[in-house]
Design a protein around this nucleic acid. Structure first.
Lengths: 342, 342
DNA sequence: TGCAGTAATTAAAACGTTATAAATTCCTCC
DNA sequence: GGAGGAATTTATAACGTTTTAATTACTGCA
C-alpha cells in the first residue's frame, strides 16, 4: 500500500473534527454520535464502539464552548487566592496539589485574587453572576465567612480551607491548629520554658480562634506565663512585627519561648533574638509551623511542625469534585494533622 | 409615584438578561443590540446610547460561552507554571502581578503545571489543539525552547519569561542575570574576596548562559579564582547542594565568596558556612538574588539583589495583551534590572 | 402474515452570540 | 414628487453541542 490510509494518525484532515465529522464518517447522525460518546445505554453497544473508534481515529475533542453554552457547565474551578499567607510557598504548594488532582479531569483552574482586607464577596458575586465556574475553593476562612453564607444560599459547590462557625455543614479541609499550638507549648514547657510568646493572625479568621484556644489551654495547664503580641498580626509588615518582638525582649521579663504560626514570623523571631544578643537554645527556644523544607537550612535549626499544603490542595480539589457530583456536604470534612520534626 | 419604576436596580426580573431581553426592552432587534454594544459606527449614536442604558439597567453581562463559541476567542490566558523555581515566593508574586493587570480586562488566568524535567510541549499542544486560551505565558525558558518554536509556527500569542537564541524575534520579559552575576562578583572582589563559588541552574535554560557569562567575565577581569559547582544545579534537592557546598569548604582552598542565584541556595550556603565553623563576613561573604523581603529577617544579614517578580508578571501580562491586539513582536521586549541592596 | 411492543436511531430545537447580506428608512437634490 | 444614495436596521445563518420528542427498525407472538 503506497496510499496513505493511516487511520492511526489523527488530524489527517486539516479541519478540526466535530461531532458532524464523526457523523459523516460513520454514517450515523450527529445526535446518535453525541449520545454514543456519552455512553447512553439507549444506543446499541456496537454503535457506541464504532463511534468511539472513529472519534479516537479522528482525534475528536469536544468543544468546550459549545458544551458550556448548551449545558451551562463551565468545566472551570476557581481558586480565590488570598494576598497574604503565613507561608512563603503557600501559593505554589497549594496550587500544585490542586492541579495534580485536576489533571486529566477536564477541569481547569482559574486564579482570582482575594484580599482579606477588602471586599471578599465581590469576586464570588462575579463568579456566580457571570457563571464563571462550576466550583470554588478559597482560603483564610472567617468564623462567619460571608462567602460561605452566600455560596450556601446559592447552593454553589465549594470547599473552604478552614472551618466556620455556621451551624449548617459545608465542605472544608483544615489543619489542626489547636493541636499544633498545644503541642508547641507543651514542647517548650518540656524544655523548661516559662514564658511563651505568640503572634496571632487577625481575629476574624477561624483558625485564629483555634490557635488561641490551643495555646491558652496548654499555657494554663502548665501554669506558666505568656505574651500574645498586641497591635500586630501575622500579616503585619515584618518590620512592625520585628519592632514589637524586639521591644518585648528588652522588657523586664522577656519570653523564653516562641510559638510561631508561620515561617516569616519564625525568621523575625530568630532575628529578634540575634538583635538583642540572646542565644537560641540558651535564652529561648522556638517552635514554628512550616510548609517548606527550607528550615533545614536555617541556622540555628529550630523545632518545626509541618503543615502539608500540597496535600491540603489535593484534599480540597478531590472534595470539590465529589461535591460537584452531588455528594451531600455532611461528610465532606477533612482535618490534616501536624507533623512535628521533634 | 408609588409604582416600582426603579430603573436603577438591576435584576428586577428573575431571569438572566441576554441580548434578547435588551432587544424586547428597547424595541430594537437582537442584531442591532449586539452591534450597538460593540459600538459599531454603523449604528446611530442615539441608538447606541439607548441600548447601553438598557443594558446597564438590566444588568446585562455577555455570555462568555456563547461569545466564545461564535468568535473562537476564549477570553482566557494560560500560565505554564514551572514546578521548580529559584525563589520561594515565585509563584505568588508572579501570579499577583499577572492578575493585577488582567483584573477588569475580562480575561481570566488558568494555571497549568509545567515540569521542566518532563515533556514541556504537551501542555502547549493541549492548549493549542483544544483551543483553551487566547494567549500563553511561561517561565524557565530554554535556549532553543521547543515551546517557542511551536507557538511561533502556530502564530499563537505568548510571552516568555526569559529569552531564547532563536533568530526570529518573539516577545519576552527578562531579568538581567548577566548584570546581576557580574555585579555580584565585583562586589565580592571589592570586599577583598579571591575565590568565588557559584551554583548554576540547569544548562538548558537561557538564563544559565547569561549568569555564567557575567560571572566568568567578571571573575577573569579581576583575575581571581572561582568554583562552579559540578554535579548539581539550583534545582537539585537542597541536601545535595548542601553536601557539595560543605564538601568544598573542607577542601584545601575553600571559597571566600558566594554568588547565590536564589534564596534557597543562599540559605544553604549560609548553613554550609555555619556547619563548617566559618564566620560570615570574616571567612566569606555572600551576594544573593532575592525576590522577597524575608532576607531582612535572616541573620547574619547578607548582601542581596532584588528581582521584582510582581513587576515581571505585570510586564508579561501587559505585553501579552498588546500582542493579542496584534502588535508585532519586534519591539515587545523588556529587561528588568537588578536592584542591589548594597 | 400482521401486530404490538421494544430497541435503536434521528430530526429539530435550543443555548446566546456575531457576521453577512439584504432590507428598510431617511435624506438630499433635481 | 421621485430618483438615487447614504444611513440604519434587521432577518438569517452559523458556531458545536445536548436533549426532547418523534420516527424507524426489529423482535416475538398469535
Amino acid at each position: 500500500m503506497i496510499d496513505d490510509t493511516s487511520g492511526t494518525a489523527p488530524h489527517t484532515q486539516g479541519e478540526k473534527p466535530t461531532l458532524r465529522t464523526i457523523a459523516t464518517a460513520t454514517g450515523f447522525s450527529v445526535a446518535t454520535v453525541s449520545r454514543a460518546l456519552a455512553d447512553d445505554p439507549q444506543i446499541a453497544v456496537k454503535t457506541r464502539a464504532t463511534v468511539a473508534a472513529a472519534a479516537k481515529r479522528l482525534g475528536y475533542i469536544p468543544d468546550r464552548a459549545a458544551r458550556r453554552l448548551r449545558t451551562g457547565r463551565t468545566q472551570v474551578i476557581s481558586l480565590l487566592l488570598a494576598t497574604e499567607h503565613e507561608f512563603l510557598g503557600f501559593t505554589h504548594e497549594f496550587l500544585t496539589g490542586i492541579t495534580e488532582v485536576l489533571a486529566g479531569t477536564g477541569y481547569s483552574v482559574t486564579v482570582v485574587p482575594d484580599s482579606p482586607g477588602g471586599d471578599r464577596l465581590a469576586p464570588v458575586r462575579t463568579i456566580l453572576r457571570n457563571n464563571l465556574a462550576d466550583g470554588l475553593l478559597f482560603t483564610r476562612t472567617e468564623t462567619f465567612d460571608p462567602r460561605v453564607r452566600l455560596l450556601m444560599e446559592a447552593d454553589f459547590p465549594f470547599v473552604s480551607h478552614g472551618r466556620t462557625e455556621f451551624t449548617m455543614p459545608h465542605p472544608w479541609v483544615d489543619f489542626d491548629n489547636e493541636a499544633f499550638a498545644r503541642g508547641a507549648v507543651e514542647h517548650l514547657v518540656a524544655k523548661g520554658r516559662r514564658k511563651i510568646s505568640l503572634v496571632l493572625p487577625g481575629d476574624k479568621f477561624t483558625f485564629t480562634q483555634h490557635l488561641r484556644y490551643g495555646f491558652l489551654s496548654a499555657v494554663r495547664a502548665a501554669g506558666i506565663d505568656y505574651d500574645i503580641a498586641e497591635g500586630i498580626t501575622l500579616d503585619s509588615p515584618t518590620a512592625e512585627i520585628a519592632a514589637v518582638l524586639t521591644e518585648a525582649r528588652r522588657g523586664p521579663t522577656p519570653p523564653d519561648g516562641y510559638v510561631c504560626v508561620g515561617e516569616v514570623t519564625a525568621l523575625v523571631s530568630l532575628a529578634a533574638l540575634a538583635d538583642t544578643g540572646a542565644v537560641y537554645g540558651v535564652d529561648a527556644d522556638i517552635v514554628a509551623k512550616r510548609a517548606s523544607p527550607i528550615f533545614d537550612n536555617i541556622r540555628p535549626q529550630i523545632d518545626t511542625v509541618f503543615e502539608d499544603l500540597r496535600a491540603t490542595g489535593r484534599a480540597m480539589a478531590e472534595m470539590l469534585l465529589r461535591r460537584m457530583e452531588g455528594e451531600p456536604a455532611d461528610d465532606l470534612h477533612r482535618m490534616l494533622l501536624p507533623v512535628p520534626s521533634f
